[in-house]
Simulated assay, not measured.
Amino acid sequence: MARGIARAASFGGRATAGWFSYRRVTVAVCIANLVAALLVLRSFTSLPPAPTRVEVVQYTEEQIKRVEESIRIRREAEPVELVQAVKKLRKVFAREEKRRKELPLELKQKVAYDIVGRLHDLGDNSSSIQQREALESWRVETLKHTKSASIQNSSNLGLSNEEARMLKRTLEFNWHALLEDIGLWIPVEVPHTEHDDKPQNEPEEEEIIAGPPLDPQCNAELHADYGGAAVKWGLTHHKGSAADCCQACLDQAKNAKPGEMKCNIWVYCPSEFGCYSPDKYEHKHQECWLKQDDRPKLNFKDKYTESYRDSHPRAPVVVSWMSGVTSA
């Protein structure tokens, strides 16, 4: 009997020791800590937010009066009329710039060709005043036709209704800008006397033209800038040499389709520093303009006059362009 009781006590002790093992005690303590941490975190989140402290600055009546006086003086000194005028000018310039961009390149070329034809009718001996009068007469006549929305009235230049609408706005608001865009400039006639101070028997300095020799048909002229209707827009048409530019003109005339303008004038910029022109563009080295004109006429030759450079400060002394009228 005593042995049975001892054995039972020994078995019970081992069972209790197995139930309260270190692993189970550790797990129980961790769970209790986690529950306690969750309860503490919940108590923090349930607390109302701490009130924000706002510092209120107290100004005296004298200080308030000074601030109001300062604001009043600043408003009175503000150039309201000038600001409004500048805003209006910006809107006008934005509209004009938009109108200029609306006119497509093909339409500009059509206008240039028609204007050159009108100037040809005046003859080679026409004065700049007569040329300006002819241009204004063309503008008024064209504007009269383009004001009508019918295709019949706008067909004098071969224009569609949309092209006639754009051209009408340009002739009304951007006439001079259009002349600049197509590269047309009529010089002011200023009487001047040329002085030849060169010593007698002084040898001429022969200029060297970079690149291969030019074809005799090119009739190259140094320091010369010919006008004419643009067949190939030089801003996007560059050639490696004057010979290549002239050859491009000869090839275009040879391969032109019926009804297309045939190049008979080439204008090339041989200067690494670019070439001057009175339009709005920056003309760079190796620009090659292909033009057409039944009666070729020089815009500039050799040097810009002193009177011209007085009115155009950006103009250099010597004409940088070189040109030629083909004999093909």
Rank of each mutant, 00 (worst) to 15 (best):
I71W: 11
I71G: 04
I71M: 15
I71V: 15
I71L: 15
I71C: 11
R72A: 13
R72Q: 15
R72W: 09
I73G: 10
I73T: 15
I73Y: 14
R74L: 07
R74D: 12
R75L: 14
R75Q: 13
E76C: 02
E76S: 07
A77R: 15
A77L: 12
E78F: 12
P79M: 02
V80Q: 06
V80F: 04
V80N: 02
L82I: 03
L82T: 13
V83N: 00
V83H: 02
Q84I: 01
K87G: 00
K87C: 00
K88Y: 01
K88D: 00
L89T: 01
L89E: 08
L89V: 01
L89R: 11
R90G: 06
V92P: 04
V92K: 14
F93I: 08
A94H: 06
A94P: 00
R95T: 06
R95N: 07
R95D: 08
R95P: 01
E96W: 05
E97Y: 00
E97L: 00
K98L: 10
R99A: 01
R99D: 10
R100D: 14
E102S: 11
E102M: 05
P104Q: 03
P104R: 09
L105H: 15
E106M: 10
L107D: 12
L107E: 15
L107F: 08
K108W: 09
Q109S: 09
Q109P: 02
Q109W: 02
Q109K: 15
K110T: 13
V111S: 07
V111T: 11
V111E: 09
A112T: 03
A112C: 06
D114T: 11
D114M: 09
I115G: 02
G117K: 15
G117W: 08
R118V: 13
L119E: 05
L119T: 04
H120N: 14
D121H: 14
L122S: 08
G123Y: 04
N125R: 13
S127V: 06
S127Y: 08
S127I: 05
S128C: 14
S128W: 03
I129E: 14
Q130W: 04
Q130D: 14
Q130E: 15
Q131L: 05
R132P: 02
E133A: 07
E133S: 06
E133I: 11
